[in-house]
Amino acid sequence: MLEARLGSTTLLKKIVDALKEILSQSTLDCSASGIQLQAMDNSHVSLVAMSLRRECFERYRCDRNVALGLDLKSLMKVLKCASGDDAVTISAADKADKLQLRFESAGNERTADYELRLLNLEQDHLAIPETDYACVVHMPSTEFARICRDLATFSESVVIACSKDGIKFSASGELGSANITLSETSKGDVSLQVEEPVTLCFAVRYLNSFTRATSLADKVKIGLAADVPLLVEYPIEDHGYIRYYLAPKVDD
């Protein structure tokens, strides 16, 4: 059986919020080491990989591997029944068809139990190769969200060009064009590690969906290499992450 307790429901809400625009349904793979999720969006252009190691939880027990197929919108509806500072415990028996969620208020005066029906979902895991990114950029997650939002006004596509001088985001369309360049800052909120310059083009609406994870982390890590998917990674506290991968666009 699985039993996993988080000190605050807010964290779980943020995680589900970061997933549910890209994925409507997905499977949580629970094992002794923690909870993982991997899924493509419906159009198979992007992929989300999430990991919450057991250290993320106040209490964690998983005797046998369990796969929990979830409808994320339904899960969010249940989470909305909790206060943000409630502790949440999720549990499921082996071969369960329901997920139990228990919310406990800070002083333990109120306990609320919910059950969520589980789904039988096809599991379609992809092997993500270890990639040596030619450019790795760290920047404030709010800055990345702002750039993606602003560039979506101009075009469906954004060109990301990274070199030792900076990372440049460009978009152009009928309205006009936009170019935003960030260079490395002395205070370290933007950092660039560049082995060789890379320029790639991406669909901005996926980038905007990824920024739903902004509230999870102050910093976002971006990995770029020629002709491989873009990596956008948000850490979750000290022992977890959400990684989004986005296939580049190529010239017709």
């Binding site: 992929l47 991968y245 296939a247 190529v250 017709d252």
Partner: peptide, 12 residues
């Protein structure tokens, strides 16, 4: 042209 993510990451 938009490529699919599964042209980069293959099914296990």
């Amino acid at each position: 042209m938009q490529r699919g993510i599964d042209t980069f990451f293959h099914r296990m």
